[in-house]
Design a protein around this nucleic acid. Structure first.
Length: 230
DNA sequence: GCGACAG
DNA sequence: ATCTTGTCGC
């Protein structure tokens, strides 16, 4: 995509119209290269929300090792916050900073995991889907809570999941990533099917609720991590 | 008009 | 998201 054709500081009305247009460009089928590196993305805030902090962690996927994932690069980018949080328009607030962080990366991952929704969004363009279009990379969204969609109760065994639906459409999955813990909401972003999305999320699960790429990015983006470094 | 509402 | 200590439970 061409950055010059895209505005980030749009009024809600324009942003919503743009989402509807961009959603049509999403690829639903798998189009993913052999996975060597997986990136995790998350955004945090400082100074009462005035500063946006984008974190990207890249892990190497090593199927033959006991430790399937190993961190090989991590980047943090800070900048003044440009937009308030508006449900449904999260990507306009978070993606600009995320792109800056990606620009600092030396490795180009084959798969990207984002903290937030993929197509499980009112207009099918959650932050993971929107970022996927920008990066032209396969993306999957892992959210800690629901934005839209209906679902039945999910089993309590790790790996259990139920479809997240919107009318007749399946827009994601509610996945029990850890026993006795609230499930996560997995939805494909760009260039990924739901099945493949779930496969990778489950494969990247450690002992915690969030898959490693997102968990580590979360930690890096958090205010707490910043204190940790001092 | 009344709720719901990723981070 | 963030402000924040201890505390209940697997």
């Amino acid at each position: 995509m061409d950055a010059s054709l895209h505005e980030w500081n749009l009024a809600p009305k324009e942003a919503i119209a743009l989402q509807k247009t961009l959603a049509k460009r999403l690829e639903t089928a798998d189009r993913i290269d052999s996975v060597q590196h997986i990136a995790g993305v998350d955004i945090g805030f400082e100074a009462g929300g005035d500063i946006t902090r984008a974190a990207v962690v890249v892990l190497m996927w090593q199927p033959d090792s006991t430790q399937h994932l190993a961190v090989v690069e991590q980047v943090v980018h800070r900048e003044p916050t440009r937009m308030p949080y508006i449900p449904g328009l999260l990507s306009f607030r978070e993606i600009p900073a995320a792109l800056e962080a990606f620009a600092k990366l030396t490795i180009r991952p084959e798969l990207v995991m984002v903290d937030g929704q993929g197509i499980a969004h009112p207009r099918r363009l959650g932050v993971a889907a929107h970022l996927g279009l920008w990066l032209n990379l396969p993306t999957v969204g892992i959210a800690k809570s629901r934005l839209t969609g209906q679902y039945e109760e999910v089993g309590n065994m790790r790996g259990d999941w139920v479809p997240l639906t919107s009318g007749k459409d399946v827009i994601g999955a509610v996945l029990r990533s850890r026993e006795n813990v609230k499930p996560v909401f997995v939805s494909p972003g760009h260039r990924l099917s739901l099945e493949t999305s779930l496969d990778w999320v489950v494969r990247c699960l450690g002992r915690t609720k969030l898959p490693e790429p997102t968990r580590l990015a979360d930690r890096l983006a958090s205010r707490r991590d910043q204190k940790r470094l001092i």
